[in-house]
Design a binder for these strands. Sequence first.
DNA 1: TTGTTATTTTATAATTATTATAATATTGTA
DNA 2: TACAATATTATAATAATTATAAAATAACAA
Lengths: 145, 145
Amino acid sequence: MKPNHDFTSKLKQAGIRVTPQRMAIYSLLMDYKNHPTAFMIYEQIRENFPSISLMTVYNTLNMLADRGLINVLGHAGDDSVHYDADIEPHVNLACISCHNIVDINSKYVNQMTNEINSTSGYQLFGARVLFYGNCPACQNQSRSH
Amino acid sequence: MKPNHDFTSKLKQAGIRVTPQRMAIYSLLMDYKNHPTAFMIYEQIRENFPSISLMTVYNTLNMLADRGLINVLGHAGDDSVHYDADIEPHVNLACISCHNIVDINSKYVNQMTNEINSTSGYQLFGARVLFYGNCPACQNQSRSH
DNA sequence: TTGTTATTTTATAATTATTATAATATTGTA
DNA sequence: TACAATATTATAATAATTATAAAATAACAA
């Protein structure tokens, strides 16, 4: 049986040369579901690659995004860009207080994607469906003021 | 008959003090459909208010966004934030070549919004539903290389 | 209207996310 | 192994956004 995520071949298929840093960044983004920023990734990776530079993280993320292997979510109330390794159209839900982003399921996303694909005339690369508000935990915190 | 857009009362209702600069920024964002960045707004407004500062534009946009009068769309292939005065949930379609953003209708947006409102537990403030790709014009340009 | 106070606007400087550059290191391959 | 192409790193540069504080303006009471 083959491994669930064959990162190496995915990178190669996309024409991206395989290096330990890229593997670490890509697999971190695939494994974690927390939609991190470049800096958050940098801090994580540094535990295993103490000499990695933030530039490498940015280079890798831009490369992965250009080839369509990851998705750029944009800001989440803070001012840095969040990334998502889940490139299937789906809904993200961002909390503008704690800046966490979670995935949720919606039966309408695929229908909407198909609709736009067939009617817009655009050559679509991806979607960023992000609802924002206060998560349950942050709603409770603001009550206790 | 009352005017279609009563900017003054909208600002007042939101607790925002009315100034000529704020009126100009808000009405520009309501009238134009091109989802501009802060700098694009600055350049437009400067034709009527030669001494306006970019800081005022940022202050006003942040204030309008905080009170929920406008929507923050995030980046569109460039690296500055785009704004939208249409706060009804709707679909934006961004071209990553020319960085234009247009609105399109989708019958699924409202259904999706209601679904998330009732099932997520989040206190929702807005949505950013953005599909990206190449617009028809830019597809033609890239063919002629 | 006029005077007073709080709020805004503006100019300037500071911050910070991201990108550019160039030297060094590593990868793929003959 | 050795060569050529590409990647990584450290550093500096860029540019969007925010902070600060003085000057200007809006709200409002008398």
